[in-house]
Design a protein around this nucleic acid. Structure first.
Lengths: 384, 384
DNA sequence: TCCGTTATTG
DNA sequence: CAATAACGGA
């Protein structure tokens, strides 16, 4: 038996709007931890993974794991019948063949109830790509949308290149070629966060080599780069790279940046679980407990994003700052069509995270408070 | 000779926008009382009746009745040439074959003049359905629009059911079933207004029977339910039904709720023709002269609507309150396609009134100050 | 109120 | 398959 109450139907509406063109049918896997969905797009080029964590619900109960097979288009229609601020309750009995959605107007007297027919969907085995990456970029989701949309006017694919220069998005088209370079706020750091909410140290990647792995410096000073560590430091520290640039080496494993598989930790970072203060204080925390146990394993967890949003109190519009972390030079080419599609999720949250390693699928992660939506996209073969 | 000057062209523009998809050609019947139009939709399933009352015009003169046959599409085009706030004057000579429309910019120096070719249209005999109903619902026109639009995503038809629970709109579709329940403000009253601006008494319909006719109680207390009677009372009186519920019986004729055929009375109710006070005071009036001469015959006159808007001074957002009046349980099924079309008129006025009786066409009435647009739609046969 | 997207018609 | 109109969203 499932009963999940969302304070605002809008989250669900946005999520389904985001995936409805990618996926036609999918299983919503409900369990004690929350609800997840994983599906390949119809052409099996992209993979979407959605998670709604249990504590993101106003009320959540799921006695035993149950997959709810839904037609995404139908669910989208049903969700269109909800107003954004309606309280939305999902219910499904064990073995039920319908999912019941109830919308209650905040102010009272309208109650709508919808029964969506469920279907059996083969739980296709989805290989979630590797979870550690050579590079991580965090930027405004709106800016990401703009970049891929702009470039999609010129060509079909985009080469994303992370170097000490910053991140470059480049597309070649018949009529014109174009590229966008994002400099990143402060020095380019190698790692920004630990997957579990630990604080990682960073080194700046300014001394990027043209080939992979090299230049990993572990000065935590550079940590200023990380979202939490501190915007404030960034300014002061920019280009504070030690002499170590160029001769760094990190364990492949440890230095890799990886997304947090668990959406829950975010809470900690985000809502100052630490109890040491509000989110902004966290910045302090980062500094205090800075020496990282390990210097890599960055996770794109919601925490990261969240942490950032809050931690970035300091200077200016944090939402606009670009954070670049890189262990080694990365250059990959992707289909813009998919990236444009992914960027629809930007209405869920202000920041998006990109994780990349050469020859490995790109991970585009939108972590919102109550969960995340992540997209994996295989690079085009002939990438430079 | 006709000369009719409207202070704002927008009214006419909206009216024609509303009917242009339903009707291709129609006669504008001009007489001393104003201008009316009645037409069946092309498939003869729905009927539209528009009235612009004489005193809704800034200036009105019509020496003798004259039908002006126009192509609605053409008139719509001509009206698109008017700005919303232009002063719009319609002129037609006796026996003329053109209708002249002049638009004067409020502030001055632009005067546009258009001559629309007229045509002879057979005055088809339109049977306006019965004018008394078992149930009346008044709600936000925007909400009505939303409900029918939402449900139209799921299925082709909607079952509208009025019971003591409230009004339920339900639609079954291939992928999902859905329903919206509106609770109504305060207790469900049987009758709310007399057609002529008389004060009717009401009883609440809480003790509704499953079959028609029954439960008519004449306690004026319940009158609080009516729009004029008073929102204020509603809160206090909710469920104040006397013991009489359940054993009422009303004359079929007298208890029926019917739309006001005359657009003018509204003025009386609305603008305190009685001169005993302003609209709000009217509430008082209702109570003072409560013992109804007759207890039914409710009319959907504009007065009703208007009265409500004003009478509903009390509590909250009157525009959102749902008013339900019912003599007996009603359940009918209608084509959503038409209802969606009707709901285009919601840009004319904030409230819409629905009148229903079993096995009889639904009346959807938008009464704006200067007249009304009403739609009649036959129920689908197999309705429960 | 204007722009973009979607659906319908030719 | 393309163009036009309608509907929905920003």
């Amino acid at each position: 038996m499932l009963e999940a109450k969302l304070a605002e139907a809008s989250v669900l509406k946005k999520l389904l709007d985001a995936i409805k063109e990618l996926v036609t049918d999918a299983n919503f896997e409900c369990s004690e931890e929350g609800i997840t969905l994983q599906a390949m797009d119809n052409s099996h080029v992209a993979l979407v993974a959605v998670k709604l964590v249990q504590n993101g619900f106003k009320k959540y109960r799921c006695d035993r794991p149950m997959p709810l097979g839904v037609n995404v288009g139908s669910l989208t229609k049903v969700l269109k019948c909800a107003k954004d601020d309606d309280i939305c309750t999902l219910r499904a009995a064990d073995e039920a063949d319908v999912l019941n959605l109830v919308y209650e107007a905040k102010n009272s007297d309208r109650i709508s109830s919808y029964d969506l027919k469920l279907m059996d969907i083969d739980a296709e085995t989805l290989g979630i790509p590797k979870t550690s990456y050579e590079a991580r970029i965090v930027l405004s989701s709106a800016e990401f949308t703009r970049i891929v949309r702009d470039l999609s006017l010129l060509g079909d694919s985009v080469r994303i290149e992370v170097s000490k220069e910053g991140v470059r998005f480049a597309s070649d088209g018949e009529a014109a070629n174009g590229n966008v370079l994002l400099k990143g706020r402060g020095p380019i750091g190698k790692v920004d966060r630990g997957p579990q909410g630990d604080d990682e140290d960073e080194e700046d990647g300014d001394g990027v080599k043209k080939e992979k792995k090299h230049e990993d410096d572990d000065d935590e000073d550079e940590a200023g780069e990380e979202e939490e560590g501190g915007k404030k430091k960034d300014k002061a520290k920019v280009k504070k790279e030690k002499s170590d640039d160029g001769d760094v080496e990190m364990d492949e494993d440890e230095d890799e940046i990886q997304p947090d598989e668990d959406g829950e930790e975010e809470k900690e970072d985000e809502e100052d679980e630490d109890g040491d203060g509000d989110g902004k204080k966290r910045k302090k925390k980062s500094k205090s407990s800075p020496k990282p146990a390990k210097k890599a394993k960055t996770v794109p967890s919601s925490k990261s994003k969240k942490g950032k949003a809050k931690a970035d109190d300091g200077d200016d519009d944090d939402d606009e700052a670009v954070i670049i972390q890189m262990n080694s030079h990365v250059s990959l080419t992707f289909s813009l069509k998919y990236l444009v599609n992914f960027s629809k999720s930007s209405n869920l949250v202000k920041r998006v995270e990109l994780y990349m390693s050469n020859d490995v699928p790109l991970l585009v992660s939108y972590d919102f408070g109550q969960g995340y939506i992540r997209y994996y996209l295989a690079p085009k073969i002939g990438d430079d």
